[in-house]
Design a protein around this nucleic acid. Sequence first.
DNA 1: ACGAGGATGCTCT
DNA 2: GAGCATCCTCGTG
Length: 219
Amino acid sequence: MRKKNGCITNKDLSFIKRLIPQDFYARDTVRVAQELLGTLLIREVNGLTIVGRIVETEAYIGDDPACHAYANHQRAKLGKTPTGRSAILFGEPGISYVYLNYGMYHLFNIVTEEVGVPGAVLIRALEPVRGIATMQSLRPQAKTLTSVANGPGKLGLAMSIGPAFNGHPVFVPRELYVAYADKKIAPKQIMARPRVGISKAKDALWRFYEKGSAFVSKA
DNA sequence: ACGAGGATGCTCT
DNA sequence: GAGCATCCTCGTG
């Protein structure tokens, strides 16, 4: 059930039903990206709990020129060990990959697929659910609730996700993790569109969002 | 409403 | 040195 203004009510917060287990992420990246929609991203900081409902994601896989792991993936096919920033994408699923984008914003991803297979889901937008005042204080530029976390850079700020979270497991209920929400607030319909802000593999429909949500980066 | 341009630092060639 | 998985401000209509 929702309020007239579209916000989730307290009643819906009988959530945190259960943590999403690590093996959820050890699957096809596109599928994980779709199924993360409607789940809850939870951040515990200074004794406060911030909760956002994931409404927009993008999938990045190894055989995908837009993926940071692409070059490493080609080398890995020749038997080379992955190196550098994107090596983490070849590792354990359910680990977060946080990187600095445009020298300013920390973008939050979750590693997918079995160990050895690169992939990640970029979490692009949240619907604020709880700890809203805290999120707003972390996003002083946002004049409306819909613009607090409607983009990956804004999301990183609103959830206080910094470089220290690179390599952090999101399947452990500590600091930053993801949980299933009540079925009642599951997305009714998912849209698939081209990903945003990339110059290669522009045509793949690997951006997913909840249809009708006012909290996505753009419809 | 919309588009151009700037901020700013890391990664990889 | 080029190229970014972005966001904000300020200009123009």
